[in-house]
């Protein structure tokens, strides 16, 4: 290890021209870099976990209203968001599945992660007849670095009950994206 380090060091030391060249290029670039704005956003927006609704394994009834609530922020400027709800009837528990809400046991199975169980629409193995599909894009007013979002989504009647995934996708102005997924359950409302 020591020998290798010294080889690298010697090689670098020997390569003065290389270093000099790199330095001169760096000088040019530093010039360009100095002229450009420093406000380059390099981080995705943040979805606050604390007060996020819906919560994992929440139960909703058909004809009910799903109250979506979250606080989001970005160091530069927020962009827009999309809410998407799709069925998880086949309980894709293979491999990387995150949360699987089992009604009988009334809790979460142990899995690797609680959030972001993927943009799972790709795993509905088939569009199930009668399953609820919801997807809508929402704008956030320009210039905001944080926002509190409240959206009421009416759950239609006549859709199939079962497990669903709630997906929130959020961008900032620069085009970075954050995703949050929640497993929810839908039941038929019976008088």
């Amino acid at each position: 290890m020591q020998i290798m380090r010294s080889i690298i060091n010697r090689a670098l030391a020997a390569n003065k021209n290389n270093v000099f060249f790199a330095l001169s290029i760096c000088a040019v670039i530093a010039g360009v870099a100095a002229c450009e704005s420093k406000s380059r956003d390099t981080t995705p927006p943040v979805i606050d976990e604390g007060s996020f609704l819906p919560a994992d394994c929440d139960i909703y009834y058909t004809g009910d209203t799903m109250q979506v609530h979250f606080v989001c922020s970005d160091d530069t400027e927020l962009g827009s968001f999309n809410i998407e709800i799709h069925n998880n009837f086949d309980h894709h528990t293979h491999g990387t599945s995150a949360v699987d809400c089992d009604e009988e046991e009334g809790g979460e199975h142990e899995h690797d992660e609680e959030e972001h169980h993927g943009e799972d629409e790709s795993h509905d193995h088939g569009m199930v007849e009668g399953a609820w599909v919801f997807s809508r894009d929402y704008a956030i007013a320009r210039g905001k670095t944080s926002d509190t979002i409240d959206v009421a989504i009416p759950v239609p009647t006549g859709v199939s009950e079962g497990d669903y995934h709630f997906m929130l996708r959020l961008t900032d102005r620069a085009g970075w994206q954050s995703i949050k997924a929640v497993a929810v359950h839908l039941r038929d409302f019976v008088e």
């Binding site: 827009s80 999309n82 894009d137 620069a174 994206q177």
Partner: peptide, 8 residues
């Protein structure tokens, strides 16, 4: 990459 969404 824009800040907008299209078809989810």
């Amino acid at each position: 990459p824009t800040a907008a969404y299209s078809e989810g």
